[in-house]
């Protein structure tokens, strides 16, 4: 059986005046059908870049190396038109920040009609009725279908965005911090919707987030990114109970609980990706750093079955 999604040695670089920013370096990752994969990391570690790279919507002049195999097709080498047809139809993306993701001059209905007609040759009436259905399934009444985006609240707009992403029933949904700008109650509603959808459509979900709580709640596996590199990958259970990379440990330690007496944080801030630190990219902030961490880049090693980490001392944390 061909793999559902296989990211093989993917590197993405943005060119700036100061030089190349290595936003992603040598990412290897697989996802199977129906799985929920959490992608976590700090701001600027390449999470969103990964989602956009899969969908092929990185800005022009971005350097992409390596392969992204999706159901046997190598996405970065796909023709423009073929790639366009794949978006929303097979892979869809929900963004953070729903307030600015809808065209202010277009009615909600037209967003749907345009999207459906861009992918399928159906009548306008058919597209409209599907739009109504999709909105209803997100709990938005059909009387509002001819409203403009500014007439909706943030939570409603995110539900509209989800409805837009799902109206063509894609098999992979990438959710890029779908709840970051929403309040807690709306957040839990959105997460519930996502889980329902997974159950009903048997859809694969890639959840990009910096919220470890969400990951624990709904993800099967977790990938931890740091400074553009994959530093740990494993089942949610393993990563939470036995984090093998000091960075993951730091992330987990900085979660705030009700009984938190003292705030923990990881010292320092993520490195400059134009000239990243030598060896292990985390060594300047790592409490366990040794000479070898400065000199040699740790490979991604499978310390346990299905649990990989890129740390020279991974086995000491087992």
């Amino acid at each position: 059986m061909e793999t559902f999604l296989k990211i093989d040695d993917l590197s993405v670089g943005y060119w700036t005046r100061r030089g190349k920013v290595g936003a992603l370096v040598g990412i290897r990752l697989e996802m199977s059908e129906g799985e929920t994969l959490g992608i976590v990391g700090e701001t600027g570690c390449g999470k969103s870049t990964l989602g956009k790279a899969i969908l092929g919507i990185l800005p022009p002049l971005t350097e992409i190396q390596g392969h992204i195999f999706f159901r046997g097709r190598d996405l970065p080498r796909l023709g423009l038109e073929e790639y366009r047809r794949l978006r929303a139809k097979e892979i869809a993306l929900i963004f953070q920040d729903p307030m600015t993701r809808l065209n202010p001059l277009m009615r909600i209905e037209n967003h749907f009609v345009e999207e459906i007609l861009a992918h399928e040759s159906v009548s306008k009436a058919e597209a409209r009725s599907r739009a109504r259905e999709a909105l209803l399934s997100m709990g938005i009444h059909e009387s509002r279908i001819r409203n403009y985006p500014h007439e909706f609240s943030g939570g409603m707009r995110q539900r509209i965005m989800i409805a837009l992403a799902l109206v063509l029933k894609p098999s992979l949904l990438i959710a890029d911090e779908p709840t970051t700008s929403l309040d807690v109650i709306v957040e839990s509603q959105i997460l519930e919707i996502l889980q329902d959808l997974k159950r009903v459509y048997h859809m694969s979900l890639q959840l990009i987030t910096h919220n470890m709580g969400i990951v624990a709640e709904i993800c099967d596996r977790v990938a931890v990114l740091y400074a553009g590199k994959l530093v740990e990958l494993g089942s949610a259970h393993d990563v939470f109970h036995k984090p093998l990379h000091p960075y993951t440990q730091g992330l987990l330690a900085s979660i705030i609980h009700l009984d938190t007496k003292e705030l923990h944080s990881i010292e320092g801030s993520p490195p400059d990706l134009i000239s990243p630190p030598s060896g292990c990219r985390f060594h300047p902030r790592c409490p366990y750093a040794q000479q070898i961490c400065v000199e040699k880049e740790p490979p991604l090693v499978e310390f346990q079955k299905g649990h990989l980490a890129a740390c020279h001392f991974g086995d000491t944390f087992l």
């Binding site: 969908l55 929303a88 600015t100 345009e114």
Partner: peptide
């Protein structure tokens, strides 16, 4: 604008993006 990127992510054609 972010809605332009969103339209691209939903597979809108270049012409549609430019005009609408």
């Amino acid at each position: 604008e972010l809605y332009v990127e969103a339209a691209r992510a939903l597979g809108a054609r270049s012409w549609t993006i430019m005009l609408r």
